[in-house]
């Protein structure tokens, strides 16, 4: 009898010990605090051309303009999670003329939301002149970027000594976008 009792007691203790395991406090709701702020860099536009590229049958090409249609900035992911952006331009000019790159952001109905201009100073002695320009998108300009479906690029050659077949030097532009994301569990 006692033996039986001991047997059951022993079993009960063992079985219970399987279930009565202890825990230190954990809080799974913390997952709602999840936040990550990755910074993504992506190449944007570029070009690298000799001075003579701005000649067409002896006539100067003062303005080149083209556009692209982009869905990217209006996408849900960007709209919800992009907290800040920078467009960074690095230029290198050995031509004795200044240039401007104008970038215009248009919405679906073709209205300009935002513009900025990158100035590229001329080279005075054929030595390359480097410059750097950063456009920051924050607040209203970030909203404008998120409305953008079309970007118009305009390259203007500023007045100066005439370009001939003998004009030396090259102009180059490289650029990147720096996208600061803020991803939170509520928006995922």
């Amino acid at each position: 009898m006692i033996k039986q009792f001991v047997k059951y007691l022993f079993l009960a203790i063992i079985i219970n010990s399987f279930y009565l395991s202890c825990t230190e406090p954990v809080d799974f709701d913390q997952i709602n605090d999840f936040k990550t702020t990755p910074v993504v860099e992506s190449s944007l536009i570029f070009f690298d051309e000799p001075a003579t590229r701005f000649l067409d049958n002896g006539n100067e090409i003062a303005t080149i303009q083209d556009f692209i249609q982009v869905d990217f900035f209006k996408s849900e992911f960007i709209t919800d999670n992009l907290a800040k952006a920078e467009f960074v331009f690095e230029t290198n000019n050995a031509i004795n003329r200044g240039f401007q790159v104008r970038v215009a952001f248009l919405n679906n109905s073709g209205q300009t939301q935002h513009t900025f201009t990158v100035s590229i100073p001329p080279s005075t002695n054929s030595a390359p002149v480097t410059s750097r320009f950063t456009e920051l998108f924050e607040g209203p300009s970030l909203v404008a970027l998120k409305n953008t479906t079309k970007i118009v690029f305009t390259l203007n050659m500023l007045p100066g000594a005439a370009i001939t077949n003998n004009t030396s030097g090259r102009i180059s532009l490289k650029s990147k976008a720096v996208l600061y994301f803020n991803l939170e569990s509520s928006s995922l």
């Binding site: 536009i45 570029f46 070009f47 083209d66 249609q69």
Partner: peptide, 16 residues
């Protein structure tokens, strides 16, 4: 990236 002014494919190809 892309070259919006002087496309690699030469004249005729627009930036878009």
């Amino acid at each position: 990236g892309i070259n919006p002014f002087f496309s690699e494919a030469g004249a005729g190809q627009t930036a878009d």
